[in-house]
C-alpha cells in the first residue's frame, strides 16, 4: 500500500465531517461521550494517514511545510481533546478542532504547499511541539484576556463574580504553563540549531517581557482573596505584550535582523 498526498483528501473529508459533528454536539448535546467519540474518530482517521504516509515515505513526514501541518492538526486535536477531558471547557474543544481543521484546509486548497521547503534549521523534532504549545497557549491566554474584560465590566456593575474569578486564574495558569513549555522547548531547539539557548534576540526579549508580565499577575494574585481592578488590567497588558511578541516584533525598529523573523 503506497499512500501519497493524492489520498489526502480522501482521509481529510471524513475527518473534517466528524470534527464538525463534534463541534456541533459539544454545544448542543449534554452527552460528553458523544462529542468525544466524534473527536476521537477524527483523530484516529488522521493519525492513520500520518502513519501510512510515514511508512511509504520511509521517513517521518516533517520535511515540508505541508508535512509539518499534518502534525499541527494531529497535536492540536489530540491535546485539545485531552484538555477538554481534563478541564471540560467547550470552547477549548471547539477552538482546537477549528484550528486543526484550518491546517487541513490549507493542505487541501494549496496542494503545491506540500513541497514548500523547510530550511535545515527548521527541520527539528522540536519545531512542531514548540509551535503547538504556543498556539494552545495563545488560545488560553486570549480567553483569559476576554474573561478579565468581562470581570472589569461586572465589577463596574457590582455583580457577583466568584466563579469567573477562579476560572480566569485557571486560564492564566494553564496558558502560562503552555507558554513556558513552548518557550523552553524553543530554548532547547535554539541550542541545537544556533548554538545558544538564549541570545536576547528581539523576539526572545519580547517573549521574556510577556512571561515576566504574567508572572507578576500570578504572584500578585497569591496575596489577594479576589483580584483588584489593577490586577485584572495586568492580564490585559500581558496579553498585549503577547500579541507584540507574536505579531508585532517584525515591525519594531529594534528587530531588524532578528533570526526569528522569517519573511515568507
Amino acid at each position: 500500500m503506497n499512500i501519497s498526498w493524492d489520498h489526502f483528501t480522501a482521509f481529510a473529508i471524513p475527518v473534517l465531517i466528524s470534527w464538525l459533528l463534534a463541534i456541533i454536539t459539544v454545544f448542543t448535546s449534554k452527552k460528553r461521550w458523544l462529542n468525544n467519540i466524534f473527536t476521537l474518530a477524527g483523530i484516529v482517521g488522521f493519525a492513520t494517514f500520518i502513519v501510512l504516509l510515514w511508512i511509504s515515505l520511509d521517513r517521518p513526514p516533517m520535511r515540508t511545510m505541508g508535512e509539518t501541518r499534518l502534525w499541527y492538526t494531529f497535536f492540536l486535536s489530540t491535546i485539545g481533546f485531552v484538555m477538554y477531558v481534563k478541564w471540560k471547557y467547550n470552547w477549548i474543544k471547539a477552538f482546537s478542532l477549528v484550528v486543526a481543521s484550518v491546517f487541513i484546509f490549507i493542505n487541501i486548497l494549496k496542494p503545491e504547499i506540500h513541497s514548500k521547503n523547510l530550511m535545515p534549521a527548521l527541520q527539528s523534532i522540536w519545531f512542531v511541539p514548540h509551535v503547538t504549545a504556543y498556539i494552545l497557549s495563545y488560545s488560553f491566554l486570549s480567553a483569559a484576556a476576554i474573561a478579565a474584560v468581562i470581570l472589569l465590566w461586572q465589577y463596574k456593575k457590582q455583580r457577583e463574580t466568584t466563579t469567573l474569578e477562579a476560572f480566569t486564574d485557571n486560564l492564566v495558569y494553564v496558558g502560562f504553563g503552555l507558554l513556558m513549555t513552548g518557550l523552553l522547548i524553543g530554548a532547547i531547539w535554539a541550542k541545537e540549531a544556533w548554538g545558544h539557548y538564549w541570545s536576547w534576540d528581539p523576539k526572545e526579549t519580547w517573549a521574556f517581557i510577556t512571561a515576566a508580565a504574567y508572572l507578576i499577575y500570578i504572584h500578585v494574585r497569591l496575596r489577594e482573596s479576589r483580584p483588584k481592578k489593577f490586577t485584572l488590567w495586568l492580564i490585559i497588558f500581558s496579553f498585549i505584550f503577547l500579541m507584540i511578541t507574536w505579531k508585532g516584533v517584525a515591525y519594531l525598529p529594534s528587530a531588524q535582523g532578528s533570526v526569528h523573523v522569517y519573511s515568507e
Binding site: 492564566v172 513549555t181 497569591l222
Partner: peptide, 16 residues
C-alpha cells in the same frame, strides 16, 4: 523548569 511548566498546565490553579 519544563517539567514544572507541564505540571502547572496540568494542575491549573490549585488554590481556585
Amino acid at each position: 523548569f519544563l517539567a514544572g511548566s507541564i505540571f502547572l498546565l496540568w494542575e491549573g490553579n490549585k488554590k481556585a
